[in-house]
């Protein structure tokens, strides 16, 4: 993709908190990263995981626990959450890749449900209430993430915002490098024609598992960061609704496109904040978008646009 597009996006990310409500932006960045991690699996490896909330929410709980109860600094807390998600991804992935296609989706959904039960029952998770009041603390023990700056009379939590933006860029870079590496090419080969990839001598299961672990680690990174932004790890984060939401974001933006998850996350997160007054009708609206999207534009916004422009986005 064009260098100028990247520069424009980067500039947008840097300037955004002065224009848009920073908490909205941070939520968007976390979910966009989550959707990108998911897209690495569905879009580039052809695996539909219906249990990605387990990694997102699981990491969120672990980070919250490490920061709140063990007094770790935020970056170590996030690291811990991410490593946990990677480990969990290894366990779930090695089981799930034993089945293909539709069964893969069902296995991941069912395994994620075990994580949901654990989040409900384990002593440190706070049960139905979740883990509340997670402190943001001092980044590297130096930078206060709670610090607010007055810009044009508006108080802005810029330290936290730029930290989240940096995490997002790191995650984006990892996903991008993975897709465009020789490893990523093999993943695409598996997506297009698995038997042929096997006959070419690739150990397909290892590639799938590796992709699964990277994807769950990045999903965990997103969830861990989210727990610091909202100072909360809740059952919603590990529920199947969240797993479904990330599928929708990716699908709506465009499966297998670089910018799709970003656009999809933007659409869904904006909808949620715009329509927060309608209460639980939001579930109906999300479901409706799912149906329309599957029936009418399976390529998603970015995918359809790319088709019109006849180039990859």
């Amino acid at each position: 993709m064009n260098k100028s597009i990247w520069a424009a996006l980067l500039l947008l990310g840097v300037l955004a908190p002065y224009v848009v409500y920073p908490v909205f932006m941070m939520k968007l960045l976390c979910f966009a990263l989550f959707a990108m991690a998911f897209n690495l699996l569905l879009g580039y490896t052809g695996l539909l995981s219906f249990g990605h909330a387990a990694f997102f929410g699981g990491a969120s709980y672990i980070t919250g626990h490490l920061v709140k109860n063990s007094g770790l600094t935020p970056e170590l807390g996030i690291l811990g959450g991410t490593l946990f998600a990677a480990l969990l991804g290894y366990l779930v992935g090695s089981l799930a890749i034993r089945r293909q296609g539709i069964y893969f989706a069902m296995v991941t959904l069912a395994l994620a449900q075990i994580v949901y039960f654990l989040a409900l029952k384990l002593p440190f998770t706070g049960g139905e209430d979740g883990l509340q009041g997670i402190p943001r603390g001092l980044l590297f023990g130096l930078i206060d993430l709670n610090r607010v700056y007055l810009v044009g009379g508006r108080p802005l939590g810029l330290n936290l915002y730029y930290f989240v933006f940096a995490v997002f860029c790191l995650g984006f870079w990892v996903v991008h490098r993975t897709i465009h590496s020789p490893f990523g090419q093999v993943l695409k080969a598996i997506r297009e024609n698995e038997p042929r990839a096997i006959s070419l001598g690739y150990k397909v299961d290892r590639f799938k598992l590796m992709a699964f672990v990277i994807s769950s680690a990045i999903a965990g990174l997103a969830g861990a960061t989210k727990s610091l932004v909202f100072q909360l790890a809740s059952l919603t984060d590990v529920s199947w609704h969240t797993s479904g939401e990330v599928v929708l974001m990716t699908l709506l933006g465009g499966v297998g496109t670089v910018l799709g998850p970003l656009v999809g996350a933007f659409t869904v997160v904006s909808l949620q904040s715009e329509l927060s007054s309608v209460g639980s009708w939001i579930t109906v609206i999300i479901g409706g978008i799912f149906v329309v999207c599957v029936l009418l534009f399976r390529r998603g916004f970015v995918g359809e646009l790319a088709r019109l422009l006849k180039r990859t986005l």
């Binding site: 296609g101 479904g244 479901g287 599957v294």
Partner: peptide, 16 residues
């Protein structure tokens, strides 16, 4: 997989 996704959307609508 699209069938799964479509019926998932329908489930959300009905449950919602």
């Amino acid at each position: 997989l699209y069938g799964l996704l479509l019926t998932f959307g329908l489930a959300l609508i009905i449950q919602g």
